[in-house]
């Protein structure tokens, strides 16, 4: 059913910390690994070892350079997957009812048996979260690892999305945004979690934590590193004695080089 639910009981989603992401792409690989073997059609690759490889991914990591008005530029690694929007435009455009948003937890899913592969949902998504699989000809998207998070066959610590489970930097967090006391709600409140493209009116559930301000050091940035301040003008102790003695031998006052 492509009408959106009035409200969802829970709002499951991710918090992605742009401050801690190191851009290792481990989430991309674990996502592809899990989702190619489990829910729905596998994520195919075309010409994977050839000259023009391409394939279906549900999560991709971009890297952006940000140049502030003053000071050095920053490199920000930027993982991007489905944001499970409250006002998901991809769902309402679907002509067959294959795309839907679950009323119980807000996850946006595709029923692949109903998908005609028209691609309109991918056009409607501003974030590029949906990709048509070239082999199966159906639309693929992040399922928030719906087959992990409720899976009682998995140990409890594995019942979270594969990308979150694998992130070595702890830059991805999974939880319920409808619960103000959840880890993700707290992180969003503490760190000023933000929406991507708020002007598109999609009301994304996933939030991004902006990079924290960098340390400011008292130094002039002019290319060369600042000179260290000498801790003693005249050498003392054993080195001082050595310096004086050698200076007397070769006639130089301050020692040889």
């Amino acid at each position: 059913m492509t009408l959106l639910p009035e409200k969802t009981d829970r709002k499951l989603g991710l918090v992605i910390d742009l401050d801690t992401c190191v851009g290792c792409h481990a989430c991309v690989i674990s996502c592809k690994g899990w989702n190619t073997e489990n829910y729905g059609a596998p994520l195919s690759d075309q010409d994977p070892y050839g000259a023009d490889p391409t394939g279906t991914f549900l999560n991709r990591v971009h890297s952006y350079e940000v140049q502030p008005e003053e000071g050095a530029a920053q490199l920000i690694h930027f993982p991007k997957s489905c944001l499970h929007c409250e006002d998901a435009p991809c769902v309402t455009v679907c002509p067959t009812g294959a795309s839907y948003k679950r009323a119980e937890d807000g996850i946006v899913l595709v029923n692949e048996a109903d998908c005609i592969g028209c691609g309109l949902c991918a056009w409607a998504c501003p974030y590029g979260a949906r990709e048509m699989d070239s082999a199966e000809k159906v639309m693929k998207k992040c399922t928030l690892c719906v087959d992990r998070i409720y899976n009682e066959n998995l140990p409890e610590e594995d019942r979270e999305p594969a990308c979150v489970r694998t992130c070595p930097a702890g830059a991805r967090h999974f939880g319920d945004f409808a619960d103000p006391s959840s880890n993700v709600s707290k992180l969003t409140a503490e760190r000023g979690g933000m929406d991507l493209m708020p002007e598109q009116g999609t009301k994304p559930v996933n939030k991004y934590l902006p990079p924290r301000p960098k340390d400011t050091l008292e130094m002039k940035v002019s290319g060369a590193p600042p000179l260290l301040t000498p801790i003693a003008e005249e050498p003392k102790g054993f080195l001082g004695w050595l310096d004086r003695t050698l200076g007397q031998i070769d006639g130089n006052k301050t020692g040889g080089r």
Partner: peptide
């Protein structure tokens, strides 16, 4: 707005 990085500077796809 796409990256939300506007407030800290001018983003460029790197």
């Amino acid at each position: 707005t796409a990256t939300g990085l506007g407030p800290i500077g001018t983003p460029r796809a790197f």
